Each structure stands twice: as structure tokens, then as C-alpha cells.
Computed example of a mutant assay.
Amino acid sequence: MNVTTTSKIDKYILNNREEFQSLLLSEASNVATKINSILEEGNIDLLKNAEKIALFVAGNKREELIDFAEVEGISWAKHSLTLALKLEWIHALRRTLWHLLRENNPLNSNSKSLTDFYELEQNINDGIDEFLNNFFISYSKYKDELIMTQRNLVEHLSVPIIPVSASIAILPMIGSFDSYRMDIIKEKILNEISRLRASVLIMDLSGIPEMDEYTISNFQKVLNGVTLMGTKSILTGLSPQLANKMIQLGWGIEKDIEIKGTLQHALNDYLVVNSK
């Protein structure tokens, strides 16, 4: 890039931060309404990050730009933020940089000036495209690795149903649960109940702080399946967050399902009863 022009753009961004942000926000109306929610949800400051990207692009700092794109891709993937918003935001940044380029290097009839201008504009496009390319590679790589890790965990999962008496078994549920893992667990639970001939299954949820709405719905199906097998379900270790989510979803406790505060309470009650 032409050093003089890029220096002007850099200085403008640094010295007129509010005007730069205002111009950028006017170019991205949909994202502008979600700035605060993205900051709260993913701890991602879009305005601050956009300034950093703009300075990397304007300064032709490609290594820094690529490194930052990779970090951004992982952050966006971790918090499952909408990619459409990211595209709109980066394209708005592209248009903002075009605007600043025109303001600092207006077209005239001088052929050299025209050549320099189009070269500068091409460099801006290349920088933005390089950011997007590395962002999406990083985003996809993180998501693919996450999916593979979860699938491997599920596929090699041995549902740890622990028999504690001739008729009572415990299922400690630990870690993150999505609908895919819940489906696999449902199948294995039903097979294990049949094999063990368990009349009571104690499911300890103390290792699960939270489930999403869809997974809770699938968990209800697991409990229904256990009931259809003629086995009584006892839930223990419900966290306040999970209990509150169930209440919000209008989940009523079926008569065949019992709730105990802790696994120890359930064992004390049922082992004592069965030992008499």
C-alpha cells in the first residue's frame, strides 16, 4: 500500500474513533442492534476488534491479520455465534475502508494516481478476504474437532450403570449432553436395564450443571423409556440451574419418577428398604 495514504487512514481511525465506529455501524444495520448482546454472550467486542482488523489491513500487516482471524474464528465457534452477522460485519468494514480510502486519496485524471488508487483498493479487498478466509478455516476446524471429540466420546461411551443390589442400579451422568449423546445413552440404558433386571434406576445428575431445551426434551424421552421397561426412575443431584430450566419449560414430574436431593439420600432410603 501507498505509505502516505495508509498512514492517513491509520491516523483517521485512531484519532476519530467515534466517527469511524459510527460510519461502520451505519454500514451494518443488523449487527448494530446486536453489539451489546454479542459482547455479553461471547465477551467479543465487535467495535474494538473491527478497529484492530482495519489497522492490520490498512497497515498491510498480514501475519498479525491472519493470527487475529484464527483467534476470532475460534471465539465465534466456541460461542456458536451467527456466521451471517460476522459476514455482514466484515463486509461493512470493507465498505468503511473503501470510504476512508476515497476520502484520503480522491480520484483525479492523473494516470499514476488512478493506478495507485486501484492498487490500494485491491490491497484492502485482499486483506479483508484473507481475514475472512482464515476466520472460516479456524471456525470450521474448531467445530469439526469439537464434533469429532463428542462423537468419539459417545461412540466409545460405556454407560456406567452400576448395580448396587439385585434390583437397584445407579447411573451417574457426567459431562456435557447434547441430543446425539442422549439418544445413544437412551439405547444403552434400556439394554442395560433389561440385562440387569433392575426395578429401580437412580440417575445422579450432579455432574450436569445445565442442559439445553432440546436435550431436556430428549431426557424426558429417556425417562419415559425407563418407565416403559417397568423400572422406577429416581433423579438425584439436580442443580438449581437445571431445575429452573425444567420449570421454565413446564416440565412436570411424572408420578413414576421420584426426586432425591443427593445420591446418598436415595441409597439410604432404597437400600435400607430393600434390606428389610
Rank of each mutant, 00 (worst) to 15 (best):
residue 6 T to M: 15
residue 6 T to D: 14
residue 9 I to L: 04
residue 11 K to R: 14
residue 14 L to S: 15
residue 17 R to L: 11
residue 18 E to D: 13
residue 18 E to T: 12
residue 19 E to A: 14
residue 20 F to E: 05
residue 22 S to R: 13
residue 22 S to Y: 08
residue 23 L to K: 11
residue 23 L to W: 10
residue 24 L to S: 04
residue 26 S to Q: 13
residue 30 N to Q: 08
residue 33 T to E: 08
residue 35 I to F: 12
residue 38 I to V: 01
residue 40 E to W: 02
residue 40 E to F: 05
residue 41 E to G: 10
residue 42 G to Y: 00
residue 45 D to E: 01
residue 48 K to Q: 07
residue 53 I to M: 07
residue 53 I to G: 05
residue 55 L to I: 08
residue 58 A to E: 03
residue 58 A to G: 08
residue 63 E to C: 07
residue 67 D to G: 13
residue 67 D to W: 04
residue 69 A to R: 06
residue 69 A to W: 01
residue 69 A to L: 05
residue 70 E to Y: 06
residue 71 V to K: 11
residue 73 G to W: 03
residue 81 L to K: 00
residue 81 L to P: 00
residue 85 L to F: 06
residue 87 L to F: 08
residue 88 E to P: 04
residue 89 W to V: 03
residue 96 T to Y: 06
residue 101 L to T: 07
residue 105 N to H: 10
residue 107 L to C: 08
residue 107 L to V: 08
residue 108 N to P: 03
residue 109 S to T: 11
residue 109 S to I: 12
residue 117 F to V: 06
residue 119 E to A: 15
residue 120 L to T: 13
residue 126 D to L: 13
residue 128 I to R: 00
residue 129 D to F: 13
residue 130 E to S: 14
residue 134 N to I: 06
residue 139 Y to H: 12
residue 140 S to E: 07
residue 140 S to L: 13
residue 146 L to E: 15
residue 148 M to P: 15
residue 148 M to I: 15
residue 150 Q to L: 12
residue 150 Q to S: 12
residue 151 R to S: 15
residue 153 L to G: 12
residue 158 S to A: 12
residue 162 I to H: 09
residue 175 G to S: 10
residue 176 S to W: 12
residue 177 F to T: 04
residue 181 R to Y: 09
residue 198 A to M: 02
residue 200 V to K: 03
residue 203 M to C: 03
residue 203 M to Q: 02
residue 208 I to A: 05
residue 211 M to I: 09
residue 216 I to H: 04
residue 218 N to A: 10
residue 219 F to W: 08
residue 220 Q to N: 09
residue 222 V to E: 01
residue 223 L to M: 02
residue 224 N to Q: 06
residue 225 G to L: 00
residue 228 L to F: 03
residue 231 T to W: 04
residue 234 I to H: 04
residue 234 I to D: 02
residue 238 L to P: 01
residue 243 A to M: 00
residue 243 A to N: 01
residue 245 K to A: 09
residue 247 I to N: 04
residue 247 I to E: 05
residue 253 I to C: 01
residue 253 I to E: 01
residue 255 K to W: 05
residue 257 I to V: 02
residue 258 E to Q: 07
residue 261 G to F: 09
residue 263 L to S: 00
residue 265 H to I: 08
residue 268 N to L: 11
residue 274 N to M: 11
